[in-house]
Design a protein around this nucleic acid. Structure first.
Lengths: 170, 170
DNA sequence: TTGGAAAATGAGTCGCGACTCATTATCGTA
DNA sequence: TACGATAATGAGTCGCGACTCATTTTCCAA
C-alpha cells in the first residue's frame, strides 16, 4: 500500500468518526470526504460502501473500548468503565447508532475485557457472585442507549447508575 | 370531518404503527399507504409531513402505555410494567426509533402513571424510598432500547431485569 | 530521471422517497 | 335527486445521497 493511500485511509477514518459522532450515521459520505480533505471517490476507493466505512470505525471504537477496559481493574474497575461509557455515549451518537451494522460484539475482545472486570469486582466483593457477563453487557448497552437518547444531566446519570450498581451489589 | 376521512385517518394510523413497528421509522410513507389501502396523497392530506405521522402514532402509543400503567398497581405493579414494556419493545422498533421526533414524554400522562406505580411500590416496601421518578423513567427507556437492539432472549431479559429490580429494592 | 502502476479526482448517474396538484370521486345536505 | 364542498387519487416533481468511471495526479522502483 502506497504511503499516500495509508495516510488518506487514516484521515478518512478520523473524519468519519467525527462526523458520525455529531450527526449520527445518517450523515452523508460527502460530509466525511469534505472533513477528511479528500474527494468523494477516494472514500469509496477505501471503503466500497458506506456500511464498510461504518463497520471500520465501529471496529476501531470497540477495540479502543476493550483496550481502555483492559487498563482498569480492582474493586471498582467495572464501575469506572460504566461511567466512562455513559459519558462517551452521551457525547457521541456513533456507537449507539450502529445497531444495524453487523460487527460481532466479540470483536476486539470487549466481551473478554468486561468479563475480566466483572471477575475482579466479584473477587473484591463489590459485585455479588451470581451475576454473569451477558447481563452486564446488556446493562452497558442499555445505559449507553438511554444516556444518548434521554439527554441525561450529570445528576440523573449518577442516580440511574446508582440503581444499577446497587442491583449488582445487593 | 367527513365519515370517510375519519375512517381513513384511523386506517392510516393503524397501518403506520404496523409498518414502522416492523421496519423502523425509515420505512417509506408509500408502504404505509399501501397497507392502509389508500393513495399516497391521502396520507399526506391527513399528515402533511412524515414527522407529523410519526408524532401522531407516538402520541397514541404513549397514551396507550399510560392507560396500561394506570390499570396496574400494588406491590409489584411497577415490575409488571417494566416487563410488559420490554416485551413490547423487543417486538416493535417504533417507540425506540422515535428518539428524533419531539413529543414531550409527559404527553398522555405516562410520567404521572409511572410515578403512581412507584409510589405504590414504595408504600408496599417493594422499592426503597429514596428512588425517584426520573431515574425510573430513565431505566425504562434504557431497557427498551437495550432489549430492542440486543435481541434479548427471555433468560437474558429476566437476568437483566433482576439486576435492576434488585437495585430498586436494595 | 522516468515509466508505469497505484491512487486521487469530481462531475455525473441512478434510485429512492418525501411531497405536490390537477383531476376525479364521494359525501352530506337541501 | 342534485349539487357544492370535501376528500381521494396517483402520476409527476424534486432533492438528496450512495456510488461510478474516465481522466489526471502522485508515488516509487529501477
Amino acid at each position: 500500500m502506497r504511503a499516500d493511500a495509508r495516510r488518506n485511509r487514516e484521515r478518512i477514518l478520523d473524519a468519519a468518526e467525527e462526523v458520525f459522532a455529531h450527526h449520527g450515521t445518517s450523515a452523508s459520505t460527502e460530509e466525511v470526504a469534505r472533513l477528511a480533505g479528500v474527494a468523494i471517490g477516494t472514500v469509496f476507493r477505501h471503503f466500497p460502501t458506506k456500511d464498510d466505512l461504518l463497520a471500520a470505525i465501529l471496529k476501531r471504537l470497540l477495540a479502543r473500548l476493550a483496550e481502555d477496559a483492559a487498563t482498569l481493574g480492582g474493586a471498582d474497575g467495572l464501575h469506572v468503565f460504566f461511567r466512562r461509557l455513559v459519558a462517551q455515549s452521551a457525547a457521541k451518537r456513533t456507537v449507539v447508532d450502529l445497531a444495524g451494522v453487523s460487527v460481532p460484539a466479540a470483536v476486539g475482545g470487549l466481551d473478554e475485557a468486561v468479563g475480566e472486570l466483572l471477575r475482579q469486582a466479584q473477587a473484591a466483593g463489590t459485585v455479588r457472585g451470581d451475576v454473569r457477563r451477558p447481563e452486564v453487557m446488556a446493562l452497558l448497552v442499555c445505559v449507553c442507549q438511554g444516556a444518548l437518547q434521554g439527554g441525561w444531566d450529570v445528576e440523573l446519570q449518577e442516580r440511574t447508575l446508582a440503581v444499577i450498581f446497587a442491583g449488582l451489589a445487593a
